[in-house]
């Protein structure tokens, strides 16, 4: 990784920060500010050059994040960020691709793509800003909302069980699965640095409260309910899932699962090399002769 950039200096910012001039459009007190702070610090620590970073997002409050970093970014459509990110990463595997989004983006409309990105073990980091509610559309139930949750679309309470993002991602084949908290910027920074250092699909679920549309789970609610696990990351899926599911009250932070297996981009590079060794690199004329 390179730390050099020939980009013109930007006025009014710390020399090291990767933030852009655009101010976030989020509500005051939004958890996503903490995520931005943790990300900025982590990226500085990692020493990535801004032109080597690509943020890819879908739709939602948190998916606005790419604008607030002066790096490359692609603000795409609802749920599809992991698929777009796959294209970016395969087109240029040297890029640091970070997918950001919310619980609705990742685990409702985009579940399919998350499961397959995890299964393929694409080498990127996906950060879910989980507030258990749809914020951009002003307060509807989300796939991670608790049962009985009252929202505009569930005026009599939600009758659906929430999905557990951590368990789903482990079961799908993600090779690094962690949880962090927007108010614990230090933990978040460390987790992002670790996830970026991990070759393969890294998933971080960040509890990022929305005190506008999810008053039940604002920062005050989480106060005293969040603790960092003392257990090491498990290398066995069943063990990791047990740690997550058997944890009692409150939210547990930490890296629950980590394992190594070939990355998607690495495997494809290998496949290309083997295919070329076996069949050679054909010219267009030679390909044409296969139709003779």
């Amino acid at each position: 990784m390179s730390t050099e950039t020939t980009a013109p200096a930007r006025a009014g910012r710390s020399a090291k920060s990767l933030r852009s001039d655009l101010k976030p459009v989020w509500c005051p007190g939004c958890g996503d500010y903490g995520v931005i702070a943790g990300l900025d610090k982590a990226l500085q620590e990692l020493g990535y050059a801004r032109h080597e970073i690509v943020f890819v997002s879908g739709i939602g409050c948190s998916s606005r994040l790419p604008y607030f970093f002066d790096t490359y970014g692609f603000h795409t459509i609802h749920g599809r960020a992991p698929a777009v990110a796959l294209g970016v990463k395969l087109a240029n595997p040297k890029l640091h691709v970070i997918v950001v989004g919310g619980d609705g983006d990742f685990f409702s409309i985009g579940t399919n793509h998350m499961v397959h990105a995890a299964r393929r073990n694409l080498d990127l980091t996906a950060i879910c800003m989980d507030n258990h509610v749809y914020g951009l559309t002003k307060g509807q139930v989300s796939p991670t909302s608790e049962r009985d949750f009252l929202t505009g679309s569930t005026p009599y309470g939600s009758v659906e069980e929430p999905v557990n993002p951590l368990v789903l991602m482990i079961a799908s084949g993600a090779t690094f699965v962690a949880q962090s908290y927007a108010a614990n910027v230090k933990h978040l920074r460390e987790t992002i640095v670790a996830a970026e250092g991990h070759p393969g699909f890294s998933f971080i679920n960040v509890i990022s409260p929305c005190h506008t549309f999810n008053r039940e789970k604002d920062f005050a609610y989480y106060k005293g309910r969040v603790s960092v696990t003392e257990e090491e990351a498990k290398h066995d899926r069943a063990e990791a899932i047990r740690v997550i599911l058997t944890h009692g009250e409150g939210e547990l932070l930490g890296t629950f699962y980590e394992t190594r297996r070939p990355t998607y981009d690495g495997s494809l590079a290998d496949l290309r090399r083997r295919a070329r060794e076996r069949h050679g690199v054909p010219t267009l004329e030679e390909i044409l002769e296969s139709f003779a």
Binding site: F74, A83, G87, H116, R276
Partner: peptide, 28 residues
């Protein structure tokens, strides 16, 4: 693969075009 390119069988058509858009954005 012989031309140093990639073919991805996507999880659905939406993913297929989105993967294409990502790769196009990055120069392919």
């Amino acid at each position: 693969p012989l031309l140093d390119g990639d073919m991805v069988q996507a999880e659905d058509e939406i993913a297929a075009i989105c993967m294409c858009l990502g790769a196009s954005f990055a120069g392919k």
